[in-house]
Design a binder for these strands. Structure first.
Length: 636
DNA sequence: GTAGGGTTAG
């Protein structure tokens, strides 16, 4: 996990609370076409029939009416009885379901399975167990249903017994057990079972990947995802991310072509897709449609727009769209506070918070995370301490690990390393690797090798494969010219199969993402890009810029180090931006890792030389470079 | 009868 996951965690979790996913589209469409098909076939075949009226009642949740029709049918089939039972269960009328189950003249395997599942869905494990024992015959579905019941109620041991006792096991049983292990926090057991599974389908993989991810093992999850793709299994729709978003946008434009007016939910979904793809141009087009339809002030649409603009680097438009929201809710305020935080507009974030309180909107955990990250990025130590104190006493807000990680970050960045360590050691919950990593990165910032070694040890105890910790530590050794220690760490990484995440930067132009690595010459415009970079390199020297060799972090000769530095991925991306956009316009670059200090210095001057604003989002925050200065005031 | 039952994700 990156050191500043706290901040990204905020952005990741907040859209979930108000964005409709593309899934909503497909779901809605499927539902629409299903019900349409159902109606036409029944009316065509018989004009009127008991069973179609019965089904309609069930669909409309008119249970008593459905039951009255069922009572009128001369000798209803088992499947109609079962359908009625399911209807009761879905509406939590378990006693009615049981009454009908006992009353029906003949019960088959499906009806038994359905009533057992019904008991479980209604929370009656005991009754489910009783019926399971009583049923005359069981198939693999009966066993799975019962096993899932135990897993759902945390009775892992009983579930395991059922798993081993059942006479036959199909893939769904294995999948259920794996998922059940994860649900009960038994990660190791899930992993072991996954190894034993006779064959794996997409559900097995998805259960494993999401299970690992939910238990903070995102690196392992990613590795497994690669394995899945390698083994020839195609990911289903949270995995082929860009395709999914492209699909969602296509549905949106198809709807418009068909003359169906998008509503607030289609807007949020489409805007969310633009946001994920960083496709600001397409987002703007959708924004215009929203204005035309008078939906710009709607709280859902407005929230999405706020997040879209601030995440794509344009905080001013983020603020502008936020202001237009008629009835701002907690999510709206959280979005703008988080946006300001990421752009280093700490004072704005705090002002927003004051206004939020004045407007009578209750802050929540996410508000607090946003505020703390705002303080961290703007170096507001005192404000951060006050807020932390304030929220610690706020009964409606539960302090979580992210809050602690942010506070450690605030203290650490300000050089209060001992206080930060004390906070970690006295936390009411056990610190996770994110918290220790925040401390470690502060140590790197202030070159405190001793504490860094302690913090790194704690990270490794919790997360032995954390590449970020290895990299931070080895960079710190490199800074101190302790090359033998650097080599030791690198050897360890190699032995343990841990690889450093390669740095890359990208520019999105006309919906196309151009990705660059350090020294990358694969882009068709490479020759022009490097000409530009070399030209800029000369100009930089004229401004008295001297490359800071410490940031090359390779044990090589100085001249070579300089070459490596001048071609860091962000600079190649900027070079591309310069030659392919209109003079004077803003260039927006995204980078997966933190920008190094040397590049930061160079880009400030570059912006002055080319008279352009350069917006760079690194893994920590947004930097706005203009006229020789950066919005972060060299504090990030 | 393509009808009523168990597994993941969003």
């Amino acid at each position: 996990m990156p050191p500043f996951a706290a901040i990204f965690g905020y952005f990741k979790s907040s859209p979930k609370t108000f964005f409709a996913s593309p899934f909503v589209f497909s779901f809605a469409f499927a539902k629409f076409s299903r019900s349409f098909k159902g109606l036409s076939s029944s009316s065509q075949s018989s004009g009127f029939s008991f069973s179609s009226v019965f089904s309609d009642h069930l669909k409309n949740r008119k249970l008593d009416e459905a039951r009255a029709v069922l009572n009128e049918i001369p000798s209803p089939s088992v499947h109609l009885f079962t359908k009625m039972i399911m209807g009761y269960v879905e509406n939590y009328r378990l006693s009615d379901a049981l009454e009908l189950f006992y009353k029906m003249p003949f019960r088959d395997m499906v009806s038994w399975n359905s009533i057992i599942k019904g008991c479980l869905d209604c929370g009656d494990l005991e009754m489910a167990e009783k019926l399971f024992d009583k049923m005359p015959e069981r198939n693999v579905i009966s066993w799975t249903t019962m096993m899932n019941g135990f897993l759902q109620f945390g009775r892992v041991g009983v579930a395991e017994r059922l798993f081993s006792d059942m006479p036959a096991r199909d893939i769904a049983v294995w999948n259920s057990m794996i998922y059940g292990y994860f649900r009960n926090g038994r990660v190791e057991d899930a992993m072991k079972l996954f190894e034993r599974i006779p064959y794996r389908n997409v559900i097995s993989w998805t259960s494993m990947i999401s299970g690992l991810d939910q238990h903070g093992m995102s690196d392992e999850a990613l590795l497994l995802f690669q394995q899945m793709v390698n083994s020839g299994i195609k990911p289903t729709s949270s995995y082929g991310l860009n395709c999914k978003h492209e699909d969602a946008l296509k549905v949106f434009s198809d709807m418009m072509k068909m003359g169906i007016l998008p509503n607030q939910s289609s807007f949020t979904s489409a805007l969310n897709s633009c946001c994920e793809m960083e496709a600001i141009d397409r987002g703007k087009e959708i924004h215009i449609v929203a204005i035309k339809l008078g939906l710009e002030n709607d709280v859902f649409v407005g929230n999405s727009l706020t997040v879209l603009y601030s995440k794509c680097g344009n905080i001013n438009d983020g603020v502008a769209t936020f202001k237009k929201i008629d009835e701002k809710n907690t999510v709206s305020w959280n979005s703008i506070i988080g946006g300001c935080a990421q752009h280093g507009c700490g004072t704005w974030a705090l002002t927003c918070f004051t206004q939020m309180i004045r407007a009578g909107i209750d802050p929540d955990e996410i508000t607090f995370t946003g505020l703390l990250s705002a303080c961290s990025h703007s170096g507001m130590l005192h404000k951060g301490r006050c807020l932390f104190e304030y929220f610690s006493q706020c009964k409606s807000i539960e302090m979580n690990l992210e809050h602690y990680a942010c506070m450690v970050d605030i203290l650490g960045r300000s050089g209060k390393l001992e206080e930060a360590e004390e906070l970690v050691r006295n936390m009411p919950m056990k610190a996770n690797s994110m918290v220790w990593l925040a401390l470690l990165s502060a140590c790197k910032m202030h070159s405190n090798l001793e504490l860094a070694e302690r913090a790194a040890k704690c990270v490794f105890d919790l997360e032995p494969h954390c590449s970020a910790a290895y990299v931070l530590l080895s960079n710190l050794y490199a800074f101190s010219n302790r090359w033998s220690d650097v080599a030791r760490i690198r050897r360890k990484m190699k032995q343990r199969g841990i690889t450093k995440q390669p740095g890359c930067s990208w520019v999105t132009l006309k919906g196309l993402r151009h990705v660059f690595h350090s020294g990358d010459r694969s882009h068709p415009l490479s020759e022009k890009i490097y000409q530009k970079l070399d030209w800029l390199g000369e100009k930089l020297k004229g401004f008295g810029y001297v490359p800071d060799q410490r940031f090359a972090l390779h044990d090589v000769e100085d001249e070579q180090k300089e070459a490596i530095l001048s071609y860091h991925s962000e600079r190649v991306a900027i070079g591309f931006g310069l030659i392919s956009t209109v003079e004077g316009s803003t260039i927006t670059v995204m980078k997966n890792l933190r920008v190094c200090e040397d590049c930061h210095t160079a880009i400030k001057l570059l912006a002055k030389i080319v008279r352009r604003e350069i917006v760079l989002r690194d893994s920590s925050r947004f930097h706005h470079f203009k006229d020789g200065f950066c919005s972060c005031r060299d504090y990030w």
